[in-house]
Design a protein around this nucleic acid. Structure first.
Length: 209
DNA sequence: ATCCCGAGGG
DNA sequence: CCCTCTGGAT
């Protein structure tokens, strides 16, 4: 079967998940930036469990920069990759202090220049914290569902993003990832996709029903 | 054994 | 392109 029409995918998922948004807990752009760094290869439920206490203690870039590395490592340990993530957070925080007056920058170019921040994290911050998406968030769910739906045949996240930018309307850029992530977690799961319960099963080239 | 809102280095 | 980094759930 050919690729699912992206406008149908979006409209049906909007009906299914009205008000879909990030399920990471955050108050400030810095919170979201840290939470997104912590979310690598980790469920958002686990990230939220860690950030609940973390964000109460670390309110500014200076707080992260001043932390004892071993202490921060222990505080974020349950999210996995804790040494790399602690290094990323502290390097990112120092770069904010040195180059951006302690504030989170608002452009893709500046965000991806921060240690530990790639396009995925930058797209999350731009789309969700600032409401000015420059691209499309491609995480493990967006990657999997975009391939199953035939919206791309690529495996590399940057190539997937290029394909998606061509077909996803600009006004839906930010919500698109949240729709696919919501659906990916509840129905179009990695191990056992629940095709009989999927609202896209009639237009999905990978549907088993 | 596989997967979870990845990034950096080789 | 590949590999590594890490822990916890399923």
């Amino acid at each position: 079967m050919s690729a699912a029409p992206v406008e149908d995918v979006i409209s049906r998922l909007k009906q299914e998940y009205p008000g879909a948004r990030t399920e990471l807990d955050w108050e400030t752009p810095l919170d979201l930036l840290v939470a997104t760094i912590l979310s690598a290869q980790c469920t958002d439920v686990r990230v939220n469990g860690v950030t609940e206490g973390l964000f109460a203690r670390y309110r500014t870039a200076g707080d992260y920069a001043a932390a004892e590395p071993a202490v921060l490592e222990e505080e974020i340990r349950p999210t996995g990759f804790y040494r790399n993530k602690a290094r990323s957070i502290q390097g990112m925080a120092r770069a904010l202090l040195e180059d951006h007056g302690g504030e989170v920058p608002r452009t893709m170019k500046e965000l991806v220049a921060l240690p530990g921040v790639g396009r995925k994290t930058a797209n999350v911050v731009l789309g969700d914290a600032f409401g000015t998406p420059e691209g499309v968030v491609v995480d493990t769910h967006v990657k999997r569902l975009s391939n199953r739906l035939g919206l791309t045949g690529q495996k590399d996240p940057e190539k997937i993003e290029r394909d998606l930018l061509e077909v996803v309307p600009e006004e839906d850029r930010a919500v698109f990832a949240h729709l696919l992530i919501s659906h990916g977690r509840r129905v179009c799961k990695a191990r056992k996709p629940d095709c009989p319960e999927c609202v896209l099963n009639h237009i999905c080239p990978s549907s088993t029903v």
